[in-house]
Design a protein around this nucleic acid. Structure first.
Lengths: 339, 339
DNA sequence: ATGAAAGCGCTAACAT
DNA sequence: ATGTTAGCGCTTTCAT
């Protein structure tokens, strides 16, 4: 069995309180005693039980994180930033990967509750009724990152997805494109589904570009779905000359589909993605994308959650809206009518 | 404050023991009592404290995981598989992302020790002396996944990296290539550094292909490093006609470099990667790769660790060697001398 | 079938 | 400056 504080106390010839004091760096311990205790701790290889500590302190220093898909470039990057920030603040991450599995999510949320995690980060917005009511009853701070669910009793750290989509679409319009297709996400998602879609539509409408329903398709943010939808789009007559995809993954899927059909990006079709994930630099041509500040998003999520944890009265009723940025790479070109 | 077992007991008019019994599904509780307790639990929104439980049961159902780079396609996939298997067995993951930071790693290992995690999974092999001695003293089961450090007192779940690299290289030789370059990893790594390098060398030697030192470069498994090293290789005279990169990330970096120099894969240079990560299907041309059974690796790692946890006498002294598989896609072609 | 009470390893009054 | 002791919320003998 691992040594306990009592063992240390006995061997050092002091009381457990004294050991506890040196453990917690309190003063009121004479230097020689402190030194002796420390030596014994080393000799015994003693490490205080976080379990026992949590029980009395009522603080676990644990943050539960629910990620929709660990293997996606966007989420693994934001998770990495979350981990870094948490670690810097002495918080540890309990990570749960949910791939559209409400039961598993509910189970995990319950584990988070049982574990008495200090806070919870959720990164998807397709909240089932069960989930919704569960987290509403929970008296643990919850924060949403990169998404904002509909009835938000909680804070979200996001960009303005509507504006970002609008700007991305306008960029294509300004390049002279008039047949601009759209590959969207799940319309049950407000943030990444609806907002981005409406941004696209309104950009077209405002610049008086015709909206063609056939050019509008919806999928699930993943590469495969981008590939499949692009295939459908290639069958349209006339073919679109540009595409806005609401995730880089989908954009890459579309690029690959185009490549596999012996067409060229951007010569035949211009593509702009969304997220600004690592993928953008991994593919050829490099993918222009509407960039979310992924690193900042992770950091700010954790920083805000920690404030929420340490000061329950602190409650930024407002969401935290970060800036988006168009990053131009090589996947778009101007459209010449006389081509 | 969250309700406790005592609150439930009081409200249900029974003893805490009884509540504990229904919580743990024991028999010897009359049905009507059981029902009443359950109702009260619901009404109160009571969830047993995992902390308190762990303290008395001496079991946390926590597994600590140390990942070298969450954002890499290989590690995020294996982590995803680990998470899934753990979750299925009611274990939760404490995830720590280490990017060559020994201090952080040591700190985390100490957290794992304090947290009394039931087991630890480590996915890198560059163990510093501190780390090495720390885990040797630890009386928590440790398992290595995808790597095997030098003095292995612990079990590893791996493929035969030497054989896999040998086979990958031989594939290029069989395609008729004679100028085969190598982009390697960190030679301080046994598994992914040395073994793969020696596999490459021996394959050349055995098939009597000349080994050219200029064609051999070492990096850090990442895309950028693959890119940079390929740039160096392109400057060689004569240029290599084929390349074996010890990670898919590096292979993709090399592909991009080749593309950026107006050359073609596989027409000008054939490339084979290593890992069989999702990247292989994301790039064009699709990347042929020596595939590791990533999913299985994650699953087997967790399954074995759980055995280790539940039965301390159980100790597969042997490493678990999984099979590798060459997956041919579009990045290699036969070399014709008369070209 | 149910309950009382000891104890898991620690912290934090409270005493000295 | 150091020690005694009562919990923290649960499980688990041991009684009944």
């Amino acid at each position: 069995m691992a040594p306990k504080i009592k063992d240390v106390a006995k061997k050092a010839g002091v009381s457990v309180t004294t050991v506890s004091r040196v453990l917690n760096g309190e003063k009121y311990v004479k230097d020689d005693l402190k030194a002796k205790v420390k030596r014994v701790i080393d000799e015994l290889g003693y490490a205080p039980s976080h379990i026992a500590r949590s029980l009395v302190r009522k603080k676990t220093n644990l943050i539960g994180v629910i990620v929709p898909d660990l293997t996606s470039s966007f989420y693994s990057t934001i998770l990495s930033s979350i981990e870094e920030t948490a670690s810097l603040n002495d918080y540890n991450l309990l990570v749960c990967n949910i791939i559209e599995d409400t039961d598993k999510e509910l189970k995990y949320l319950n584990v988070f509750k049982e574990m008495r995690v200090d806070g919870i980060i959720i990164m998807h917005e397709k909240l089932s009724d069960d989930i919704r009511s569960f987290i509403n009853k929970l008296d643990i701070p919850v924060i949403f990152s990169s998404v904002r669910p509909l009835d938000h009793k909680f804070v979200s750290v996001i960009i303005d997805d509507y504006e970002a989509a609008y700007d991305a679409t306008r960029y294509l319009i300004e390049l002279g494109h008039e047949r601009i297709a759209f590959i969207g996400g799940d319309m049950r998602d407000i943030t990444s589904g609806q907002n981005r879609y409406v941004g696209y539509r309104n950009a077209l409408k405002d610049q008086r570009v015709r909206i063609v329903n056939d050019y509008i398709r919806f999928g699930d943010y993943k590469t495969q779905s981008g590939y499949n939808l692009m295939k459908e789009l290639l069958a349209c007559e006339p073919r679109p000359t540009a595409l806005f995809a609401v995730s880089d993954d989908m954009a890459v899927g579309a690029m690959n589909c185009i490549h596999d059909h012996q067409l060229k990006v951007p010569d035949d079709i211009s593509i702009i993605g969304f997220d600004g994930s690592q993928l953008t630099e991994l593919v050829r041509p490099r993918l222009s994308s509407m960039e979310q500040p992924i690193q900042d998003m992770g950091k700010i999520t954790v920083d805000t959650l920690i404030e929420l944890i340490s000061d329950p009265t602190f409650s930024p009723r407002e969401d935290l809206i970060l800036g988006h940025k168009l990053v131009v790479r090589d996947s778009c070109r101007a459209y010449q009518t006389e081509r």
